[in-house]
Structures are given as structure tokens and as C-alpha cells.
């Protein structure tokens, strides 16, 4: 297996920068399979987060896949789906 190109730590860093952290939420807790809504991120926050990732990594994310990714694990998979071919190329 290839190592994860975009990991949870990368997502947390980007979420903090793009959208901040809600009161009473600990991003360093066990959030990988927690729904974004529960940790205070709605679709606009994820849109902004996706936009930041696109700029940082020079990739283009599948908008529909981003909107359907409702947990950090699913979101990371969406990013890696674009990142892997981009880095292989």
C-alpha cells in the first residue's frame, strides 16, 4: 500500500485555517469517522477547506464527491483520489 498522501493531520490543519474550530470541539479527539456536522462544519466550511487544499496541492477536487464526503475519512479519500494520480504523473 502506498502511504497516505493527505492524512488526518493535514485535514485538521486545513480545517483550522479555512474555517476555524467551533466552541466545545476538540479536533485532536477521535474524529476520523465523526460526521462533519457534529464537529461544527457545514457545506460552506468544507467548500472553503477544499478550495484551500486545491490551491496548496495544485489539484482539482471532484465537487460532487466533496459534497458527499460527510466524515473526515471520506473527505481524505476524496483528496487522495486526486492527489495520487497527480503525484504519479
Amino acid at each position: 500500500m502506498a502511504t497516505k498522501l493527505f492524512a488526518l493531520e493535514d485535514l485538521k490543519r486545513t480545517l483550522r485555517e479555512a474555517a476555524g474550530v467551533a466552541e466545545g470541539v476538540d479536533l485532536d479527539g477521535d474524529i476520523l469517522d465523526t460526521e462533519f456536522e457534529v464537529i461544527g462544519y457545514e457545506s460552506l466550511a468544507l467548500l472553503e477547506t477544499g478550495s484551500l487544499i486545491e490551491r496548496e496541492y495544485g489539484i482539482s477536487l471532484d465537487e460532487e464527491a466533496v459534497s458527499e464526503a460527510n466524515t473526515p475519512r471520506a473527505f481524505i479519500d476524496v483528496v487522495n483520489a486526486q492527489l495520487a494520480p497527480a503525484q504519479a504523473a
Partner: peptide
């Protein structure tokens, strides 16, 4: 305010 509200 929480940091969640600052970028927006």
C-alpha cells in the same frame, strides 16, 4: 469569539 467564526 470562537475561531470558527473568524474566517467567515
Amino acid at each position: 469569539l470562537p475561531s470558527r467564526l473568524l474566517p467567515q
